[in-house]
């Protein structure tokens, strides 16, 4: 029975991935991508990796979905001839001169084949004992947390998590570079709909509480900084859509502090630990639990702020372009 479910999931995931690539219209691509993310999340649950499943559902389907829908709206409503425009955007490659594309295509297929071979070889080489699971679990008492995934992410391989926060911040900086930092502080229009406003007001504390729960629960079970951050980021996005953009309400220095505090605290902690004679991120076992909780909370705040800022900036960038053209004319 479980083999049946697993094979259906596997076939579904591959089928949805193919459909996502082959769908003729951008709208279809986006919605099939949602379904694909959901199938992947289910697959992760079946593999016993609930952490990855939550992250996949939250980031790939949730956050990326919001960004995709936002982009889709800009494509379909700002463009005057929407159907033609969508098609022109989507398949200039498949119709126009196929001959000149022969070489890039060949290179792409070769690269893809090579990548698949390497991936297959890596899967083949996984040792029977489950790789490093035993090593991680042996050191669990020293890590300060009870869940092996959290122990790896925030203690044994804290370096990776630290740089991941940096990558998200870098993405935000790239958006600033493209859109201009002046968009940072534009007041939004308050939501005109009473129902929407009430629902947002209702969901804000619920999301905050659930995010905090996931953050704290990460110590003993699946959950942690990234999952909590997506929920907190969702609060920021909801408030922005409801006409209360967080970053235009709070003072600018506070916004910048929220964005950077996770990365900076990680860095300072790492250097202090090195100055104390240990390696980078080598927490003293006695205080590891508390330190990890602080690091995780600050990291979650920073990631949530960065996700909100990414959405707010992308959302405002498109809205303001027509106005700017009018004013220069």
């Amino acid at each position: 029975m479980s083999v049946l479910i697993d094979s259906i999931l596997a076939i579904l995931a591959v089928y949805l991935a193919l459909q996502c690539l082959l769908a003729p219209r951008l709208t279809q691509t986006v919605f099939i991508f949602f379904a694909f993310g959901l199938a992947l999340a289910l697959a992760w649950v079946r593999l016993g990796a609930v952490d990855v499943a939550i992250t996949e559902a939250a980031i790939a389907s949730g956050f990326l979905g919001v960004l995709f829908l936002d982009a889709l709206r800009d494509f379909s409503f700002t463009a005057p001839n929407k159907r033609e425009n969508l098609e022109a955007v989507h398949d200039p490659l498949s119709r126009n001169d196929t001959k000149s594309l022969l070489l890039p295509r060949l290179a792409l297929w070769l690269g893809l084949g090579l990548f698949l071979l390497i991936a297959l070889e890596a899967v083949w080489k996984i040792p029977d004992g489950g790789g490093l699971t035993a090593a991680a679990e042996a050191l669990l008492p020293e890590s300060g947390v009870e869940h092996p995934v959290t122990a790896v992410l925030l203690n044994f391989r804290a370096y990776d998590t630290w740089l991941e926060i940096g990558v998200i911040l870098l993405g935000l900086l790239a958006i600033f570079a493209v859109g201009g930092i002046k968009l940072y502080r534009k007041p939004g229009v308050a939501a005109d709909d009473p129902l929407l406003r009430q629902v947002i007001l209702f969901f804000t504390p619920v999301l905050f509480l659930f995010g905090a729960f996931l953050l704290y629960f990460g110590k003993t079970g699946p959950g942690g900084a990234f999952q909590a951050a997506v929920l907190w980021g969702a609060i920021g996005i909801l408030l922005h859509l409801g006409g209360r953009p967080v970053f235009s309400v709070i003072p600018r220095w506070l916004g910048q502090l929220l964005l950077t505090v996770g990365l900076v605290f990680f860095l300072v902690l790492g250097f202090l630990l090195m100055a104390g004679g240990g390696a980078l991120f080598e927490y003293p076992p006695a205080h590891a639990g508390v330190l990890i909780l602080i690091v995780e909370t600050l990291a979650a705040i920073s990631i949530a702020a960065a996700l909100t800022a990414i959405f707010a900036n992308l959302n405002q960038m498109k809205k303001e372009e027509p106005n700017e053209i009018e004013s220069t004319n």
Partner: peptide
């Protein structure tokens, strides 16, 4: 309950 709330709100917004 949360799904009910979220889906009916989004349904309302799409319809509006």
């Amino acid at each position: 309950l949360f799904t009910l709330l979220a889906s009916s709100t989004s349904c309302y917004l799409i319809a509006r």
